[in-house]
Design a protein around this nucleic acid. Structure first.
Lengths: 155, 155
DNA sequence: CTAGAACTTAGAGTTAACTTCAAGTCAAGG
DNA sequence: CCTTGACTTGAAGTTAACTCTAAGTTCTAG
């Protein structure tokens, strides 16, 4: 079974123009063409596309992804490089996860803040509350919000 | 203690031009000016800036953040709206977390894949391995990678 | 009082990742 | 054979979020 660019796009839930763009950027060198020049995606190309989607979700740029694809097609002696690339990506994701966790804590705190404000009818209730009255799990984040960060970038 | 835009930028680890840009976009209406027109960030503005940073990390656009800021400055009768906004953001973050989790699984799989390839000296080892030989925790993701997705967008 | 560093603004430039357009080509059904 | 819908390309346009530039102003130290 082969697919045209439009069919594959529908299958993956992306625009056909996106796949053409990826091809132009060198992300799809494995896609073959008909005698007339039309892209013919094979069943096995789906795995490539899924991996590309995964890397994009991990925050990698088109350029970085192209490097990986080139290595993968080049073959055997780049196994170490590819392994290293995914291991680095693992670290990046761990970092992202920690950051997301932290962002969640902030949002949880803000939800508590406005729930408390809603009950009291004014934001003064949570805003002026003594730290000791604030639920324990929000104390750290509240302190953090109200002071400048240490070294790490916040915005 | 008050800060100029450059001092505050350094404190937060961002470019001064970014803070000016945010101001231009209406994100910093609370920042006062000296008689000569120079921005004077107050200690208490740090919390605003931290919240902006948090919302940006949660993937909100400048435009959406401005809406929140406007509501917050407008005062009391928008508490419900602000609560709803953060509750929606909570859902968005849960979604992001699930996606990140999934991306991590893919990367973990790829690490295993290339570790196995490295040991064997060829990608054929993991590539052609029977599903039953694949460590149990990678089976699902391997299957998934090799087939078209259901309804959800993958890329 | 003055030099110079840091501030101000409007507006132009940058970058990534698409997205659209125009003009033309391919392929399947009737 | 012809129509028609989907495909092709290069190139231009879009969007968000900055980032830089230029011309001018403010503040602080000497």
């Amino acid at each position: 079974m082969v697919y045209t660019v439009g069919e594959m796009a529908k299958l993956l839930g992306v625009a056909a123009s996106t796949l053409r763009y990826y091809d132009k950027e060198g992300l799809l060198p494995f896609v073959e063409r008909s005698s007339g020049g039309i892209r013919m995606f094979r069943e096995s190309d789906i795995e490539w596309l899924q991996v590309i989607g995964c890397m994009k979700k991990a925050g990698m740029s088109i350029k970085d992804i192209r490097q990986y694809i080139e290595m993968a097609l080049q073959g055997g002696d780049t196994i170490d490089l590819r392994l290293a690339m995914f291991q680095r990506q693992q670290e990046v994701l761990k970092q992202q996860m920690a950051e997301l966790q932290h962002t969640m804590e902030m949002v949880d705190y803000k939800c508590w803040y406005y729930e408390t404000a809603k009950e009291a009818g004014t934001v003064d209730a949570p805003q002026k509350m003594e730290l000791a009255e604030v639920p324990e799990r929000f104390r750290k984040i509240r302190q953090e919000l109200r002071t400048a960060p240490g070294t790490a970038a916040t915005m």
